[in-house]
Amino acid sequence: MSEISIQREDAQRMGFFTDTTVCIGCKACEVACKQWNDLPADGAVFRGKGSYDHTGQLGADTWRHVRFIELLEPSEIAREEAARALANGAGGQLPQIPASELAEAGAGVRSEEIPDLVSMASQEVDVARAVADMDRWVFMSDVCKHCTNAGCMDACPTGALIRTEFETVILQPDVCNGCGYCIPSCPFGVVDRSHDDGRASKCTLCYDRLEDGMEPACAKACPTDSIQFGTYEELVNLAERRVAKLHEKGLDRAYLYGAGDAPENAIAGGLGAFFLLTEPPERYGLPADADSPIQQNVVPATLAAMAAAFGAAASVAALFRFRARFLTGMAVAAAGVEAWRS
């Protein structure tokens, strides 16, 4: 990539693989990120509506955000899938501990006094449904995607947003003047401008730690290794094998968001930080597809705009020469049609 601004020999593309199937929503990554990057608190605001996620979204001072995908009604597909997986013996068996053994453990309690909870459960609880209901809570540690086609970087007029030798996208705080153009240019809503600071900011994939050969703070802190860090190729390979494993186990809904796609289907040219998801992308607040808006639109929009502008300049000159009496009538007609339509 010619747009790499910092050259270093032997530097490889580094990334994050966030596996949502092992995330426990502990928010350790959020805390570790804030601590390492010295980010101020967001303030203790309870979001209400029974949500346990009080961070809400990524922002100028929140570079990792554990999204809680809450109160999801399991779909029919999810139930069938769980039933099929259980029938295939996946997920292990519920422990069958006889009540008599439990009774022996409890001194002075006769076995007939203790209900056989396990057999009760297997009779009355729809296990397949219970497993499917686990999807009522899914967690996803969201982060800057470090896109191959980075909308924020294409937009930045000051050159504050650059690509590093690790092919990550970082924002240089000493260059940014807070113009705010990167904010609507990010299709994932990652970048934001800090209210009290005036500059935009976002995840750097711990560029300072990477330079020292250390893994980013969030990946270091993650207790379940839901956030995995490594060289991009290695991570994609691992992620693909993980999806294959989940498919083997019957979780057919598992898929990768941002990696492993054919080039024409890649999200923003491939995401440096990609995810393993089990639900449709919108549930996680992710677009089903994305690309750098500038790379999509700037050429046709500029051509149309310039053609119109030269046309306008020529028309002004022409209208100075030729009297056209019908123009007021046309304007009145157009306004009339608009008034009628609205």
Binding site: P184, G260, D261, P281, R283, L286
Partner: peptide, 29 residues
């Protein structure tokens, strides 16, 4: 892993529409 199977799963996963839990993106400031 079979790359083609993964790519197909990705398209299937992204192709399924789901309930939206935003915010999806940030407005200009």
């Amino acid at each position: 892993a079979d790359p083609e199977a993964i790519a197909a799963a990705n398209l299937r996963g992204r192709g399924t529409e789901g309930e939206i839990q935003g915010p999806m993106m940030k407005p200009a400031v």
